[in-house]
Nucleic acid binder design. Structure first.
Lengths: 112, 112
DNA sequence: AACTTATGCATAAGAAAATTATGTATTATA
DNA sequence: TATAATACATAATTTTCTTATGCATAAGTT
């Protein structure tokens, strides 16, 4: 499986967007979801994911709720109100970045 | 003007693509070109650019040619053959990344 | 004439955000 | 019964920037 490069800076946006879509998710679930959606091309490493979740929580963008399923720990994360707003910003930022890259590398594709 | 975020990892691709388009360029020229193309949104800092150029040169992706214009130094960079091939790879990688981001954040735009 | 901005290069210190390597623990599968 | 999958976590290291600093010449401004 080709492991596509994760451009640094986009992980927070991915997490926020997935939570916006799915209401609440736990860490491991996020890694699997990303793998599934990208057909195994993008693998979020745990060393990147968990510190990212902790940071988003510390910034009050996420709320946590601990659950125990099959005697195993799960930490469910969901967006706070502040997190919902920030998600919009991050998505705009990403779109803007991609537009800039489009005019810069001038490929045969464009976003529309 | 707002300095849009540069997602880490895309600078090499930008440099290679600009050189592919323009044949040869010098560092300062690259910073101005990027600023011009993105309407001032993306500013390549010197602290990022020059080390990047040196690294690409060390990897034999770029050739250098020193010139003196108006009693001032210029270092013109151009793609080596290896650099041309790598440019194709980097562009594919970028396009792939953007496609993955597209399915992940499922926005109201898509590339085509 | 003196000062500032633009042109042109460079590197060092620090920060951000990953990867890689470990570690713990439970459950499912071969 | 060993291995893979599930589920969390952190430390060390690497990559890739930003910010700060430095040198030097040319052009424009006060």
């Amino acid at each position: 499986m080709g492991n596509s490069k994760l451009y640094k800076g986009s992980l927070h946006t991915i997490i926020l967007k997935l939570l916006e879509e799915n209401g609440k998710m736990y860490g491991y679930e996020i890694t699997q979801k990303v793998k599934e959606i990208t057909n195994g091309e993008l693998n979020i490493t745990e060393g990147a994911l968990y510190p990212a979740l902790h940071k988003l929580e510390a910034e009050d963008l996420l709320d946590v709720e601990v659950a125990k399923v099959d005697n195993r720990l799960r930490k469910y994360y969901k967006l706070t109100e502040k997190g919902s707003k920030e998600t919009v910003n991050k998505l705009k930022e990403l779109e803007n970045y991609i537009r800039n890259m489009q005019v810069l590398v001038n490929p045969n594709w464009s976003i529309e």
